[in-house]
Nucleic acid binder design. Structure first.
Lengths: 334, 334
DNA sequence: GTGAAAGCGCTAACAC
DNA sequence: GTGTTAGCGCTTTCAC
């Protein structure tokens, strides 16, 4: 078909392809008049430069990759929203990859990106990782920023939240509300993110001289189908009067479990959770949340990635922590 | 740096680049032994073929574009999740673009895709569109599938839901619950999607001999900040005893408005909404919803797009409608 | 079953 | 300020 390329455009204008190329990129070598002529003709012919030819020649893709566990998640979809907006402003394209928490899938994505398909990577790593060397390999080859989640044993630029502090403060909030037996729904345990949250919870208990036994911690729940019954069993057996959930997905089952056990939130059991649920206020009862600034995290991560592209970022190993926001609602009222 | 390409790989094996290329693509011309040698060496050297060179030469990108109004939306994030999974299975890459409901931004994305950057497009169009010719242009050049939203005056392959029926049935449900004055919160009014929902509502009223006045319809709400007060005013002035909301975003303000007006849902006002809120059951009161099969829509749209790629799809102008699911909860109890 | 050579469309180095 | 040329890394004729 009559695919219109730069050669065709050039011949139409009685110019060389080189000149047209330069004019299109607004090079200072080209006269204003020629530029105008080129632009006009390009528009007239609906010329769209072939990005692959350009990328091949220039060795840059104008594309970034975003690797997340899931897209359909209140936190990640907000982060992606922000990332897409930053990329858009820079005329960059955004490739999306979901790992479904699998380190294997993650490794295969990351490895394929070594081909040069993207200029940089934003990643919130999967929780199940075996061999982590691909992180190293990718970051040697191109700018990479971790956001929200990260591994302690991997160096890099990281945008996280104050996981320890917010878990600590949320636990303290439960203590202040009168809780004596506070359970913890663990998740992301292989990640720094999860470890810090757990540590914050444990330290808060200790500093309040409250018991901190292993059987108050529910682990390995996130990927098991019987998560609901596990939590229900936990509540009925351990009889906690407070629960802090380290991810939104584990807090929801608490509502159902309490219904079934005829327990009243917050009277019998107070509940607070890490969450980006936008309508926590409308739940019955309104849910106290530790709200992470998802949009800001995405925005910051992307912004820094672009600074790395243009060498306006020098620290290859820094963690920037944004503040979460604890919103106290009915579910933790004393 | 030691970027390893096909030439290098070939020389390492004492083969020509052509043979290596064929071996990597598992061509039948190549002996099993050679293939094995090539594969082994490719793995050993961590060879990753340059996708731009390949795309340039083969004139195909192994990439699709997904254009949506917003990523951070319960419906779209689920659809994207499905799309990414289908693409993944086909070894395709997924580019994400957000229009923020702007036809201009949409036009600029679509036009840029004419460059050949992607092999096909999945789009849920923006609600504010002026000139629609870019749809035509893109669909002439490559496979394109509309999902969820579409324009009546544009031909194409479309995956939608039974908007008319579900709005009709939801309205009927309100009537059955005893509502006499049923309001409608309109959205997407420029799209077939919005028009059909409105029509379903209106027809249901007529068939039940209920009044169907314009002042029971709240329009132009979605993009205005004062949406909340507009809805609150509507409720206090028109005193509807039932409301059907055509999008989730307009149903939430009803909860707040009712709180402020000291109205009880469902006693004073029954509410049902199109929504993909996963925790509608936990709201206070539990919210009756018209739940669209977001994942299935994304899955179906992507699956058909790939069929179009391989010419296993022939109808260029068909609308496939998936069934929504009306879930009756406390908010519409009589 | 394998190799040589041309070319996808663009851009950068080098001429003038 | 513009043109000529070479080449990015791959695939695909066409030879043999």
């Amino acid at each position: 078909m009559g695919e219109i390329n730069i050669k065709r455009l050039a011949s139409e204008l009685n110019l060389s392809a080189a000149t047209v190329s330069r004019a299109l990129r607004d090079s200072h070598e080209i006269s204003a008049e020629t530029k105008a002529r080129v632009m006009e003709m390009a528009k007239k012919l609906n010329y769209e430069p072939n990005p692959f030819a350009s990328s091949l020649r220039r060795q840059q893709s104008k594309t970034i990759a975003v690797i997340v566990p899931e897209v359909a998640n209140n936190f990640f979809s907000l982060a992606i929203k922000a990332i897409e907006e930053v990329a858009r402003a820079k005329d960059y394209h955004v490739l999306i990859y979901q790992t479904h928490e699998s380190g294997e899938i993650e490794a295969s994505f990351m490895t394929s990106l070594l081909s040069g398909r993207v200029d940089g990577v934003l990643i919130s790593p999967a929780s199940h990782v075996a061999n982590k060397e691909y992180f190293q390999k990718v970051s040697e080859k191109m700018p990479m920023v971790f956001f929200d989640r990260d591994h302690a044993d991997i160096e890099g630029v990281k945008i996280t939240t104050d996981d320890y502090d917010s878990a600590y403060n949320a636990t303290q909030h439960l203590v202040d509300a009168g809780c004596k037996t506070i359970g913890y729904l663990a998740a992301l345990e292989t990640l720094t993110t999860g470890k810090k949250r757990l540590q914050g919870y444990q330290d808060a208990l200790k500093n309040n001289n409250l018991k901190c036994q292993p059987d108050l911690i529910v682990s390995n729940c996130e990927n098991n189908e019987p998560c609901h019954s596990k939590i229900k069993d936990f509540i009925s057996q351990q009889k906690p009067d407070g629960i802090i959930s380290s991810i939104e997905e584990l807090a929801i089952p608490c509502y159902y479990a309490c219904k079934e056990l005829h327990l009243n939130i917050p009277k019998d059991l107070k509940l607070i959770t890490f969450s980006n649920l936008s309508h926590a206020e409308l739940l019955n009862p309104p849910l106290s949340t530790i709200n992470q600034p998802a949009f800001e995290i995405g925005n910051e991560a992307a912004t820094i990635l672009f600074k790395m592209f243009s060498k306006r970022w020098y620290d290859p190993n820094i963690t920037i922590s944004l503040k979460s926001n604890i919103i106290k609602r009915e579910s933790t009222r004393s």
